[in-house]
Design a protein around this nucleic acid. Structure first.
Lengths: 202, 202
DNA sequence: CGTGAGTTTGACCAGATGGTCAAATCAAGA
DNA sequence: TCTTGATTTGACCATCTGGTCAAACTCACG
């Protein structure tokens, strides 16, 4: 294992290559479905070499997940209580949809984890995610009290946004099987936009 | 392997037990994450005994999936072009939500499969599902033409229904991490109902 | 009963998989 | 250039996993 000093040029390059390869493999096959050999091959390293940078398969997975959780929650952090309610919410939704479009592997990595009971990120959900959602829920409730948006169950509002936006990344095959030619995101943006405008108009 | 005659009492019992156990294990761990030993143990059989009833792990999985696909599409089949548009659509949505509540393992089985690219049911999606959706899409379009419901992209309407309803089964852990005490379906029903009423009101 | 088909199992196998290790190779500063 | 730590690898190992097989056991029925 590399020493605990400042990472060398080679360490940076190889760690990055490993995480990139691992994202491909884990998101496509899930944790148990992924093999270390496969990740190593995709990263252009031998298996022992890979295990020189990360102590175990589990460690790679953990590194990926914890790194991505931050990225994943970022769009919600930006929701600003001082902005215009409808604009803020729609912007959040479009940021989420954009993430599904640009980071589908990340979305599927989380989906794999969640569908299987989130054994490795359960704590992060109950702590970090829960806290952030509660904070933003309070803002939504204020807006509802002020009559600036329609009154809906704020938690379920979040669930619906996550479900709708991530669906396009997670169930991409199904979406494309139905749409055949059309670019899914082409129609998804306007559809979701209209949906939430109608739902939230006071 | 049991002969091709009418199944004996024991065959019926054991096949059922195997499929039941396999549903538990596959839905919780995905295809590769599941082991034959685990399924056998949960079915109360030895591994060779299990493989006396199904020739391979793959065969069990296939049997499960093809059996369930029918169940899964049933709610959409019921959508009746002669019924009241809004009622028909909302009934469909509630049937789907009910399935997420009562058959969460089945939902997660499909979710696992889809997230990982649906290697084993891709054909069924492009054929059976696509055909059914196209048939029902035509009905929706007629209703829109007649001004009985608002005009929205019908494919994306279906995606949104699937995403919203299955979310509660597939991402159950996350939902519960946010809601803590509350029963998810308690709030989900009214929320989704209101959402589609607003979206589809002409 | 007895018998043949249906059912069950312990022992076993080959390949895959996560991980280890000592030895070899490489890179960069003195 | 030389040295020392960083990097890489071939060979190896224990365990897991899907699957096989012959032998043993059980059951239904004449």
């Amino acid at each position: 294992m590399p020493k605990d000093r400042a990472p060398t040029r080679i360490q940076k390059k190889n760690r990055a290559a490993i995480l990139e390869a691992a994202l491909n493999v884990f998101s496509a096959h899930g944790f148990r479905g992924a093999t270390v050999d496969q990740i190593a091959a995709e990263a252009g390293l031998s298996k022992p070499n890979l295990l020189y940078y990360f102590p175990s398969k589990e460690a790679i997975h953990t590194a990926l997940l914890s790194g991505l959780l931050e990225t994943w929650l970022a769009p919600l952090h930006e929701l600003d209580k001082n902005g215009d309610p409808m604009t803020e919410i729609l912007s959040y939704i479009h940021r989420k949809l954009q993430m599904s479009r640009e980071l589908p592997r990340e979305s599927r990595l989380f989906a794999n984890e969640l569908v299987q009971g989130a054994p490795r990120i359960h704590d992060a959900l109950s702590n970090d995610l829960k806290a952030l959602v509660d904070e933003k829920t309070a803002i939504l409730t204020t807006w509802m009290d002020q009559g600036k948006i329609a009154r809906v169950h704020p938690y379920h509002l979040f669930f619906s946004i996550w479900a709708l936006t991530q669906h396009y990344a997670d169930f991409d095959v199904q979406v494309r099987a139905i749409l055949s030619e059309e670019d899914p995101f082409e129609g998804a943006g306007p559809f979701i936009d209209m949906l939430y405008r109608k739902l939230l108009s006071p």
